[in-house]
Design a protein around this nucleic acid. Structure first.
Lengths: 122, 122
DNA sequence: CGGGATCCAAAACGATACTG
DNA sequence: CAGTATCGTTTTGGATCCCG
């Protein structure tokens, strides 16, 4: 691995900091998790995620492609077919994303309750 | 746990979805990780994170407090002392956040390289 | 010291319509 | 089908100053 290069998210201007901040983009986790089961077409992915506009999905995918997490493959057919799938590096993020997902689903009710209590104060 | 309540991040309007999206707020991971070692005062936390303005740090902390992840304690002194620390629920997020952090630091050079190659194309 | 208040810039997100 | 173009809105982040 690259641990010898000593990236540190607490250091301002360290690339790893910006990378971590990007992983939290509103749609990034859902896209990554959506592709967990294998390649999907644009419209399939869109359906799977739901309520994401084409423009936003496109830009999210572009960023992920640029960062080497997702691979885009165009099949020269009529009509065209475009597949998106996780790269190996993208796959290595699946674990962390799954963890985040599970945490969110398992703690949702606690968080909701905390909000109610907080809002009830004052 | 609450898994029987069947929250699902892929379901539109499911609270868990919004909660997961919130975990990726630009500063949330850094704040949580910053508090990993124990309670910190506002200014200590700010120094630790670096380059975050008071306004933004305040609002991030408020949200985390509202969601029950962070506890805010005011000591009636002159001058005032305010401590922030993780709650138990907040602690349970430390693992996932650490994972994200390590991933970012370990894969930073790969991502950077992928970007270069992507930008070199066309 | 720990912010709140104000104002502003920029980015992210979204709705809609349209095209190769 | 897989987007792009355009436009507008919303959200987020930042700079600066001030106050208890």
């Amino acid at each position: 691995m690259d641990s010898h290069e000593s990236f540190n998210v607490f250091v301002q201007n360290c690339p790893s900091r910006e990378i971590m901040q990007r992983l939290g983009d509103k749609w990034t986790p859902l896209v990554l998790l959506g592709l967990a089961g294998g390649p999907l077409r644009f419209s399939e992915l869109r359906q799977r995620i739901g309520s994401v506009t084409p423009k936003v999905l496109t830009s999210t995918l572009r960023t992920l492609e640029r960062d080497g997490l997702v691979q885009r493959t165009v099949f020269a057919q009529v009509p065209v077919r475009v597949d998106y799938e996780l790269t190996e590096v993208g796959h290595s993020l699946l674990g962390p994303m799954e963890t985040l997902r599970k945490w969110s689903e398992n703690h949702a009710s606690k968080v909701l309750k905390a909000r109610d209590e907080f809002d009830a104060r004052d």
